[in-house]
């Protein structure tokens, strides 16, 4: 568990620090804590590196980062994990009535390039409950497939799909309301 482990670590983990960091950043919500989570995740990855068989290195490492992030949340933001399943469904009403569509001629999402709207979207993502946020980030930033997201977050694919759907519905709702 010395030279070979370090060489493998350098080869498999070091190139993925940045993307791991983005996930940690989204889970913890700030840069300093994300770095702590990443240090912990790297130690875990290093200890596990010899038992890691060939496979999806990316999903493997992101799983470790995600679990380290959850451990951090449980210690420091227990409410974020315990009450995570609640997601206010801002978009639900709009979708049910079809109202959001009827009211705005051009789609708000397309106009989001406008700076304050991007800021609003960033805050809305930030405020998402953790399980929804991680599904969204793993999909939109990391580009993982539903299957990979299911693997990393330890839930069935159907749950991944519904979390993504709920997160998007919510964000669409937030953007629509801001437009009114």
């Amino acid at each position: 568990m010395t030279t070979a482990a370090r060489a493998r670590f350098s080869l498999l983990v070091l190139p993925r620090l940045d993307e791991g960091y983005r996930l940690a950043r989204c889970l913890t919500g700030n840069a300093t804590d994300a770095e702590d989570v990443m240090q912990e995740a790297c130690l875990r990855a290093y200890r596990a590196i010899e038992t890691f068989a060939e496979g999806n290195v990316r999903a493997w490492f992101l799983t470790i980062v995600r679990n380290a992030g959850y451990a951090w949340l449980q210690r420091n933001r227990p409410r974020a994990v315990i009450f995570a399943e609640d997601l206010e469904d801002g978009g639900r009403a709009a979708l049910d009535t079809g109202g959001a569509l009827a009211e705005t001629p051009e789609t708000p999402e397309a106009a989001v390039i406008a700076h304050d709207e991007a800021g609003r979207l960033a805050r809305a993502i930030e405020a998402l409950p953790v399980p929804f946020k991680e599904a969204l980030v793993l999909r939109e930033y990391h580009g993982l497939s539903y299957r990979e997201i299911a693997e990393v977050t330890g839930v069935p694919i159907g749950t991944v799909m519904s979390r993504l759907g709920r997160a998007r519905q919510h964000l669409i709702g937030v953007l629509s309301e801001a437009r009114r």
Binding site: L17, D18, R25, T107, P108, E109, V112, A122, V137
Partner: peptide, 23 residues
Amino acid sequence: ERVRGLSAAVQGVLADLPASPIL
């Protein structure tokens, strides 16, 4: 269209997160 637009906007926002220089 809206879902696609949202997807693009979310990607833009997430890509703007800075990486860590010291990590």
